[in-house]
Design a protein around this nucleic acid. Sequence first.
RNA 1: GCGAUUAUGGUGAAGUGGUUAACACGGCGGAUUGUGGUUCCGUUAUUCGUGGGUUCGAUUCCCACUAGUCGCC
Length: 371
Amino acid sequence: MKINYNLLHKDTNSDARYGTLETKRGTFETPMFMPVGTLANVKTLTKEELKEVNSGIILSNTYHLWLRPGEDIIAKAGGLHKFMNWDGPVLTDSGGFQVFSLAERKNILEEGVIFKSHLDGKKLFLTPEISIEVQNKLDSDIAMSFDECPPYPVTYEYMKNSIERTLRWAKRGKAVHNNPNQALFGIVQGGEFEDLRKYSAQETVKMDFDGYSIGGTSVGEDKDTMYKMIEHSTPYIPNDKVRYLMGVGDPIDIIEGVIRGIDIFDCVLPTRLARHGSAFTRYGKINMRNAKFKEDFTTLDSNCDCYTCKNYTKAYLRHLFVCNESLGGRLLSIHNIRFLIKLTEELRVAIKENNILEYREEFIKSYYNKE
RNA sequence: GCGAUUAUGGUGAAGUGGUUAACACGGCGGAUUGUGGUUCCGUUAUUCGUGGGUUCGAUUCCCACUAGUCGCC
């Protein structure tokens, strides 16, 4: 068994699902938010802290680890888990998004992508085969197919060619995938075009992957467009397979995604926001540097059970950020990740009680009305 | 007491006889969605120590005063 998704309850009023995902390195409940640990670490957090926020699975990155330290070193270390001291499930992104997000000059060919290293400008050539082989060596629990993540917006013609190529790449990657302990996911693309999403989903599903993700979201489109992209994709993904929405982590987007049948999310948002001084709260996102917190000796969010909220006040956190003390980023990272994971915990309860639509209404009311 | 010198926002400082007084830091606010880890963006002096004078016009030239700094007695 590589992984096994169990659909345990389907909401009666929406497409939301409650379930579990079994992997060799542990089982976790879904919906679930996956913290991002690009360079084999969730920035600033220790394994103990990740466990404490109840992180069921984390994401790491093929492209970055391929460049540094290199997959062979990680293999020598005994695999990614041992290397980074994390014994829970790990999903590795394929590098497709990095080509989109951090290669200023890239040349997309049928064989793969030629682009320059963001580290030293060296010319690199990444192919579906290389991506999968690297992921095989990293020994992550879930590997992602190497896809093209087209920018937004793009013409219909461009998108059509792009998803055809992504399908061919998925096939090639699957052909060389040979880690018996590792699941492999396919990625649905197609931008905002309904028929292309449908086609991409159906053709990807035909290849019979262990799970499916929806890509090409959170690349600059507005929220309604993103929700449409999900709606145009999920109907064609079988119910007995897990569904992963890539790169989405805004609290509202997670709720909307879950309502549309998404099981897993990942996003850099909680940790990036944290390092830049912003915190999620029940009453909206707040900027810790704001002068109004100077004498605010309450905690971030009275509803939160995280280490930061149990021990520190807003006035202290503000002080850390004003003074550029790195503990501030750490404490906020713990809080922000816990906030999203706790959100998914509450969503699971809501699904089981068939009242996720009410939950959404209340959450939005509180989140946007602030205090 | 005498002489020299300086006086621009919260700070360090550019600058010019003529419409909106650089820049940096700080302050204030915002951004951030499969992470190129102290990031990016906006905003922040109707005013150039005080009072006179010259001039069509002065923060910029002149005088006095005040304050700081340095030197001398």
